[in-house]
């Protein structure tokens, strides 16, 4: 049996993390959180339309995995994509301007919240159809293997997506052809209003890979260091030509599924408990303070710096003009 249970140690027990590293994760996670809060606000003002899915609560997942990636690695995800874009280094201005549907957005305003891409950062979207990104991610990995390089593709999907049939078709071929693909299940416990308990009697998603011979493990997604450690291991397996690998990352979304979700399917207390006890940003913050890696003032300065970046992105997104009407007719054929 290829699959085996994870042994992710608590973050505090990992001594070899430098102050710079910790500070960088803090900043990256905080950027996502503040950016998403701002996006929620702009949505409320009518500047962002349609669907808008926030990533608040799940920040440690992408930040931890990006810490395990190298230049050339690819990533692909669902509509809940703002965090992934910021974490891989895409420009907050371009992301926010896409949210407002403006010329300065990553897709010139034509994609919107769910559909953004960056060739430069090897970010392949931004997909609106639940689980469609999973075979696509396996295909990206196929291309790298074909070309003979050692790049890896991070293919992100949700616990809800994990029940789609195409996931298992992709698993089978990915293992058959040893594709360098890390399948990342962001298990935030809900697919819209459906809890995992109400959608499957096989709740250990990573173990399903065993049926195809794929290795994997479960990871604490509220602990950025645990995510990073698991990511490094997965990436190593894939680079060695022994992929794919499955990471089931246990996480939690604080906000509703999208902006119009009243979230009546869970209690306010459940959300508050997560926020109070498991918040990934607070965890790093307290590590920085208790380890004397930073002072309250240092952190305040970081908060301020992030707030400025986010405010600037909102300004940019408001100022950027709407796309020219000619854009309606471009980019349909190559």
């Amino acid at each position: 049996m290829a699959a085996r249970k994870a042994t992710s140690k608590p973050a505090a027990a990992k001594p070899n993390v430098s102050a710079e590293e910790l500070t960088a994760y803090y900043k990256d996670m905080l950027l996502i959180r503040r950016f998403e809060e701002k996006a929620g606000q702009l949505y409320g003002m009518g500047l962002i339309g349609g669907f808008c899915h926030l990533y608040i609560g799940q920040e440690a997942v992408v930040v931890g995995l990006e810490a395990a990636a190298k230049e050339g690695d690819k990533r692909i995800t669902s509509y809940r994509d703002h965090g992934h874009m910021l974490a891989c280094g895409m420009d907050p201005n371009g992301v926010m301007a896409e949210l407002t549907g403006r010329e300065g957005g990553y897709s010139k305003g034509k994609g919107g919240s769910m559909h953004m891409f960056s060739k430069e950062k090897h970010f392949y979207g931004g997909h609106g159809i639940v689980a469609a990104q999973v075979p696509l991610g396996a295909g990206l990995a196929f291309a790298d293997k074909y070309k003979g390089n050692d790049n890896v593709t991070f293919t992100y999907f949700g616990d809800g997506a994990a029940n789609q049939g195409q996931v298992y078709e992709a698993y089978n071929m990915a293992e058959l052809w040893n594709l360098p693909c890390v399948f990342v299940i962001e298990n935030n416990q809900y697919a819209m209003g459906t809890s995992t308990k109400r959608s499957t009697h096989s709740p250990s998603y990573w173990e399903r890979g065993a049926a195809y011979g794929i290795k994997g493990e479960e990871v604490d997604g509220m602990d950025v260091l645990a995510v990073k450690a698991a990511g490094e291991k997965a990436v190593e397996v894939c680079r060695a030509g022994k992929g794919p690998y499955i990471l089931e990352i246990k996480t939690y979304r604080y906000r509703g599924h999208s902006m119009s979700d009243p979230a009546k399917y869970r209690t306010r207390e459940e959300v508050q408990k997560m926020r109070d006890e498991r918040d990934p940003i607070e965890a790093v913050r307290s590590m920085l303070l208790t380890g004397k890696h930073a002072t309250e003032d240092d952190l305040k300065a970081i908060d301020k710096e992030i707030k400025e970046v986010v405010n600037a992105s909102a300004e940019f997104a408001k100022e950027s003009p709407e796309p020219a009407l000619d854009e309606l007719w471009t980019d349909i054929y190559a």
């Binding site: 339309g49 349609g50 896409e98 549907g101 403006r102 897709s107 010139k108 305003g109 034509k110 994609g111 919107g112 919240s113 559909h115 709407e322 796309p323 009407l325 854009e327 309606l328 007719w329 349909i332």
Partner: peptide, 16 residues
């Protein structure tokens, strides 16, 4: 409708 995938931008959507 116009012969294009639906754009997101408010002004373009109106025209599509």
């Amino acid at each position: 409708g116009k012969d294009v995938p639906m754009p997101y931008a408010a002004n373009l959507e109106k025209h599509a």
